[in-house]
Design a protein around this nucleic acid. Structure first.
Length: 520
RNA sequence: GCUCCGAUAGUGUAGCUCGGCCAAUCAUGCGGGGCUCUCAAUCCCGUGACUCGGGUUCAAAUCCCGAUCGGAGCACCA
């Protein structure tokens, strides 16, 4: 039965035309997040579980957005859970808890429930004891690297086969602050399969002793035995009724480890999805602790320094929540590692911000230009190109223009001062120009076509401008802007021919404003 | 070393489960042009990809095997 595909298609059309449509029906391009596999009649419960040892980074934002998006889509529950069960190596930052709450709110992802893993020690202890009694967990007294050697050799350590009573007794000793084991002397392990072909699965540690106090005052030094992530998360996901776990693929093995606990206890493991590693061109690889160190060194001004890959920094720059959500959702959930540019995020944000951002002139690296036969006038550029509202800029015979705009200008060159009039350079050093073109009334915009290159300006009079500093990720721009900027504190505006910025702070007295650069 | 996972234009993404309107979707970027008193917006046009090698099949981006490359786990971190 040989033949080419075409003749097969023809034959199919003859003998079974109804199948043709079936073949062609699928494969609709889809957008954004795929549908979730859901159990009918059961409310979906998702959680985002950060360690509050710093503020939300771009990576965390993906977790917040994706999980909350699904919760919203299926009318389910979104839980923010602080996985803060290591008071020492990854000591929680007191402020980070509220930063996360605040960031979730900004992202339109207000959690339905906020949970602190450090509030649930009794629950972890309860299940630990249960597992010990079942013979599925044992206290291991090996030193770290001694155990590693056993594990790598697929052989049980001497403590693996201790009887249940011994384990129980040792567990009590772990918990006993007075005369029990000390930090580093004992851990509780989950018994899996010491010969498992994947070394990552073999008898993993569930609890260890940490004598440091927890940074939450309500917890303090109440506990000295803390669960590790896999145990803490396993118990809490069950207790909270989490139905779907969606997170980075660095935790993909966690599931397989935790399934031992779920199987022993007869629990049902949630459905999981994982996304790949995310690398942002503009930031490269980063870790929360590395950023913290750089801030401590004074390299960055803080967690919201525009050069830092935190949500706080993005917020300060005027990247909107809608843009961030759309950006993250469009990434989907692929396990492929990705390396992407923030340009995509900026493009989304630009579309959102452009229709509402007011326009202003900002002259960076200002140079003075004086104008012969100038007319005093009030320039009236549009506040927004789509609207009727204008801003009013009184101007006389001197203006400030960007140094980059006059570089290379020679005598006789012509330019249009936007919303003012056309000029011709009569002297370069000092920079002097003369008004050209029509001269009717106050302003003399020339009508004739060849349009000279347009440059923007600002009056060169202290009283009519404000000093503006723009902090961008790559550099800081200093210059002067039109006076109206002072009324835009907190808003995203566009500095014409420069880009979108968020006016971060305004000092009316000193006539100063600080803006954060968003994007072009 | 052991184990697991992934690979579609410059970048991200759809299609892969269940092979066939796939000479491959959308976005962004880039190039050209229109409009414009902003280098923004907007409108046209263009650009460019199934990692490689085998196999199965009438038919492979899709299924199988191998290789290459990339990533992750093997913590008393999360």
């Amino acid at each position: 039965m040989k033949g080419d595909p075409k003749s097969w298609a023809e034959r199919l059309r003859e003998i079974a035309p109804e199948l043709i449509e079936e073949i062609y029906e699928r494969k609709q391009p889809s957008k954004g997040l795929p549908d979730l596999e859901i159990e009918p009649g059961r409310r979906v419960v998702l959680r985002f579980a950060p360690n509050p040892n710093g503020p939300a980074t771009i990576g965390s934002v993906r977790g917040i957005v994706v999980n909350s998006e699904y919760a919203q889509r299926y009318n389910g529950e979104f839980i923010l859970r602080f996985d803060d069960t290591d008071p020492k190596t990854k000591a929680p930052l007191r402020d980070a808890y509220s930063w996360y709450l605040d960031d979730c709110e900004y992202l339109c992802a207000v959690p339905d429930r906020v949970v602190y893993a450090s509030d649930h020690l009794p629950a972890y202890y309860e299940y630990a004891k249960k597992l010990i009694l079942m013979g599925k967990a044992y206290v291991c007294l090996c030193e770290k690297d001694v155990f590693k050697r056993y594990k790598d050799g697929k052989v049980a350590c001497p403590h693996r086969d201790s009887d249940i009573d011994t384990n129980l007794e040792r567990w009590e000793q772990m918990l006993d602050r007075e005369c029990g084991y000390r930090e580093g002397e004992a851990v509780l392990r989950i018994k899996t399969d010491i010969t498992h072909k994947d070394p990552a699965m073999r008898d993993w540690a569930a609890f260890r002793i940490i004598e440091a106090a927890h940074s939450r005052p309500e917890i303090g030094d109440q506990f000295r035995v803390w669960p590790l992530l896999d145990f803490e998360s396993a118990v809490l996901d069950h207790v909270l009724g989490v139905t779907h776990i969606i997170r980075g693929k660095d935790l993909i093995d966690s599931e397989r480890r935790q399934r031992y606990v779920y199987d022993y206890l007869g629990w049902e493991y949630p459905l999981t999805m994982h996304w790949g590693r995310m690398k942002i061109h503009e930031f490269g690889r980063f870790s929360t602790s590395a950023i913290a160190a750089a801030i401590a060194d004074g390299k960055y001004t803080g967690w919201d320094d525009p050069r830092v890959p935190t949500l706080r920094a993005l917020r300060r720059r005027g990247i909107t929540a809608v843009a961030i959500r759309r950006f993250m959702i469009d990434l989907g959930i692929s396990e492929t590692d990705i390396s992407l540019s923030l340009d995509n995020l900026y493009a989304v944000n630009r579309k959102i911000v452009d229709p509402t951002a007011n326009r202003y002139f900002f002259v960076w690296e200002p140079a003075t230009m004086s104008i012969e036969n100038a007319v005093a006038m009030v320039a009236q550029p549009l506040l927004h190109p789509e609207g009727d509202a204008v801003r009013e800029i009184p101007v006389g015979s001197t203006v400030s223009v960007c140094r980059t705009d006059i570089k290379g200008l020679g005598v006789g060159d012509r330019r249009r001062l936007k919303n003012m009039y056309d000029i011709e350079v009569v002297s370069v050093e000092p920079l002097v120009a003369k008004r050209i073109g029509g001269d009717h009334g106050e302003w003399c915009a020339t009508e004739e076509k060849p349009r000279y290159p347009i440059i923007h300006w600002v009056p060169d009079e202290r009283a009519r401008v404000v000093d503006v500093v723009v902090r961008a990720p790559d550099q800081t721009y200093e210059g002067v802007g039109e006076a109206g900027i002072v009324s835009e504190e907190g808003n995203v505006v566009q500095f014409e021919r420069f880009g979108f910025v968020r006016i971060d702070s305004v000092d009316v007295e000193k006539r100063r404003a600080v803006a954060y650069f968003a994007h072009r």
